[in-house]
């Protein structure tokens, strides 16, 4: 009876070492979720302050053009700009894992109709219901920067305090901002709970990688091509107008690197050259995006150049996806 147990022990030890590698993915996820929740909590607080002020004046927004309003809205924007990139750093994991994917729909990827519609309606203080309003980061961005006209209060206001009327200088609808900020905070907490309960498997992580890496071209660069960061004022996008989609992509690539770190030892044990190629591929993709993020602050690309960039990005994503698919196959993991 002791011999089978002795034989089992090395397998158990190897198994537990393997599990420890994938737990690094959870640690990475939790760290960024904590940042996201902190930002969402601050956004909620600022939205509550703004709502209270609006309630006090009976939602007569013309009476809200005060320094206190400016402080609250600047705090709300700063909080959003803390929460959103934190989420982008983990989006690749959340979107790619079946147990967590619905959170991505509701937080960042979902639309207001069709197959990718969000699963919630937004109930505003006062009882008005916004049916399937779209993802929560999108709704809060659209409200804070006035890119969605339905979420504006209709009153111009110098939010950034530079004495000029710039992009986004207007007062948001306090009810929409409060409801969306509350929902964003609640969903973020729920995601953290779900993420802590999740036990990642190799199939989860490989599946998330081969499902998400190919979105570089058709999703991130496609959005970026039509954003103000390429088209300037000719862009009619209402989302990804505050933070460049490429910065989102930077975050996603970082999450893919964190995910692969959990698989690395298994892949290296099976095929060291393939592991080196995958690591190099991730590094190449990260460097490509980093370079572009630095460049877009200094130059505008022509539509043809943006098209070329998109193709090159997709080429790099394809190289990486191909190598990840082969690695999964060599480890006997089915990613279909």
């Amino acid at each position: 009876m002791r011999l089978p147990a002795l034989l089992l022990l090395p397998a158990l030890l190897l198994g537990s070492a393997h599990a420890a590698d994938l737990s690094g993915v959870k640690t990475y996820l939790d760290r960024h979720l904590t940042t996201q929740i902190s930002g969402a909590a601050a956004l909620k607080q600022a939205a509550d302050t703004y709502y209270a002020a609006a309630q006090k004046v009976g939602f007569n927004y013309s009476a809200l053009k005060t320094p206190a309003t400016r402080t609250a809205l600047q705090a709300a924007r700063a909080a959003w700009q803390k929460a959103s990139p934190a989420y982008e750093n983990i989006e690749g994991i959340v979107a790619g894992v079946p147990a967590l994917a619905d959170f991505d729909l509701n937080l960042d990827a979902g639309t207001s109709s069709g197959e990718d519609a969000v699963t919630f309606d937004l109930t505003l203080p006062g009882g008005t219901v916004l049916k399937r309003p779209g993802n929560l980061f999108g709704v809060t961005e659209g409200t804070l920067w006035g890119t969605v006209s339905a979420y504006r209060a209709g009153v111009a206001f110098d939010v950034n305090g530079n004495g000029k009327t710039d992009f986004g200088d207007q007062l948001p609808d306090a009810r929409v901002l409060k409801a969306a900020a509350d929902a964003l905070h609640t969903q973020s907490l729920a995601l953290q709970n779900a993420a802590r309960a999740w036990t990642p498997t190799r199939a989860d992580v490989f599946g998330a990688l081969v499902g998400n890496v190919p979105t570089v071209g058709p999703v991130f660069f496609e959005d970026w091509k039509s954003s103000p960061f390429v088209l300037g004022t000719r862009s009619d996008r209402r989302d990804f107008v505050v933070i460049s989609r490429l910065r989102d992509l930077q975050g996603n690539v970082a999450s893919w690197q964190a995910m692969y770190a959990g698989l690395k030892s298994d892949v290296r044990a099976r095929d060291a050259a393939l592991d080196a190629q995958i690591s190099a591929g991730l590094g190449e993709l990260a460097a490509f995006v980093d370079r572009l993020v630095a460049r877009e602050a200094q130059r505008r690309y022509t539509p043809e150049q943006a098209e070329s960039l998109q193709r090159e990005a997709q080429n790099r994503a394809t190289v990486l996806t191909g190598r990840l698919t082969q690695a999964a196959a060599r480890l006997g993991v089915n990613v279909q």
Binding site: P214, T318, T321, A329
Partner: peptide, 24 residues
């Protein structure tokens, strides 16, 4: 295997999975 690693795949998408037939 060394030569195979230097190949190019068809463009990957989230709908169509690349296969691993040559590796297998």
């Amino acid at each position: 295997r060394d030569w195979l690693a230097a190949r190019e795949y068809r463009v990957a998408s989230s709908l169509t999975r690349l296969n691993a037939d040559a590796t297998a």
